[in-house]
Design a protein around this nucleic acid. Structure first.
Lengths: 128, 128
DNA sequence: CCGCCTATATATAATAA
DNA sequence: TTTATTATATATAGGCG
């Protein structure tokens, strides 16, 4: 559609990518609504773009939990346990990041700045 | 599309409804794939028709778990239970701490040290 | 980012097999 | 239910404000 044919690959131009996302997001959300109403089907559509903002369509006749329940039964995958594990892993990962930053902060706050490179040191001196 | 305009309401003829579901299902799955690739976005699409069979598209860069996790954090809706909620809250809290530390680190690395208190500044000068 | 516009590319309703 | 055809309705890329 549109003025030119498109290739199915990531749009490199960031601005075009954003615009296309926004337009297609509206399009697919509309399609989701249409199929759920026309065909009396349950739909769960969750989108998130680079901004991190979430957009969703869940068919009114159901809830996301219903859809996921059906999903779990149909695929045999148990989401809850996996979810729990995934969250625990993320906490571990973030905590580690946290510790590293704390160490870096302690150094930077004057006890030890040997980790800074020359340019950073000059900038620091100027600022002081 | 198609030979006639359509009204956005349930298709009463069961056979037409099935056919339309099948066609539009393919269409929307294709759209989901396209937006995820073109725009580098995370997508979770789960469909179930009257037969009960499930069709899904989850963007390759992510997992359903990730999408749901983001969904829950963004919407504030808890999909599973209290334990999930407490883990999720902890992640939010730690991430906030991380952000604060990142900001502090950026400042300390020379661009801006006005946020430091007197004692910290003295320590920094001595170190320099 | 949102809305509007236009030329084109796609999706799909109706139909038949 | 799937596949093919084809006339039309939609979706949307690119451009502009």
């Amino acid at each position: 559609m549109g003025r030119g044919k498109f290739e199915l690959k990531r749009i490199e131009n960031s601005s075009n990518r954003q615009v296309t996302y926004s337009k297609r997001k509206n399009g697919i959300l509309k399609k989701a609504k249409e199929i759920s109403i026309l065909c009396d089907s349950q739909v769960s559509l969750i989108l998130s773009g680079e901004s991190g903002k979430i957009h969703e369509y869940i068919s009114p006749s159901t809830t996301l939990i219903d859809v996921l329940d059906r999903y779990q039964r149909a695929t045999g995958k148990t989401l809850w346990n996996a979810e729990h594990e995934s969250l625990s892993n993320e906490i571990d990962r973030i905590k580690k990041e946290n510790e590293n930053m704390e160490i870096e902060l302690r150094y930077l706050k004057g006890e030890n700045i040997t980790s800074l490179n020359f340019k950073e040191l000059m900038a620091l001196e100027t600022a002081l």
